[in-house]
Amino acid sequence: MSYLYKDGAFQSDKWLTIDGDQPVPEGEDVIVSLTLFEEHQHALLTRNSGRLGVHLEAAEQLDAIVPHLDKFDVVSLDFPTFADGRAFSKARWLRDQHGYAGEVRAVGDVRIDQVSHMKRCGIDALLVTHQQTIDSLTDIKDPGLQLYYQPSAIDGETKAGGRAWARRA
C-alpha cells in the first residue's frame, strides 16, 4: 500500500492510476502511462470530465508530454531504485525550463534520505510505501540538510552566506 504525502501531511489520493489496458473511467481523475497517453492522446485530451495526469518510467523522456503540459494536473515520475537519479533532472526541467506549475509526484522507491533532494528539484508530492519513510515524514524527521550550495527550483529558500550560490532552507 502506498500513501500520498503532500503539503506537509499524508492525505487521501484522489488520483486513479490506470494500469495497462484498463478502461479510463469518465469523471475520474486519472494518471495514465506514457504509452496509453500516446495511443489515445486525442480521446484523453478531450474527455468531458475528470482531470488528467501522466506517469513517466525512469527511461522515458519528457519530450512527448512537453507540448501538452498545460493539460496535465499531475506529472508522476518513477524512482525505480534508490540509485536511479534520472527523475531529479526531469523534475528540474519541468519546473525550470517549462515552468510547469502542476503537481510533480515521486513514485516508486521513495526513501526519506532522498526527500530533501526531491523537494529541491521541484517535486511536491510523494507516493510512499516504505514504512520508515512514512514514520519519519509523520514525525517530521527529515534528515536533509538546511544549507545548500546551489540555488534550487523551489521558493522559500533564502540567500545565505556571502556568495551568490549559497542558500538556506
Binding site: D84, G85, S89, S116, R120, Y149, Q150, W165, A166
Partner: peptide, 13 residues
Amino acid sequence: RQWSSNHPEFAFL
C-alpha cells in the same frame, strides 16, 4: 567543490 556539495540533482548519477 561548493556547487557540487550535496547537489540535489546529481547525487545519484
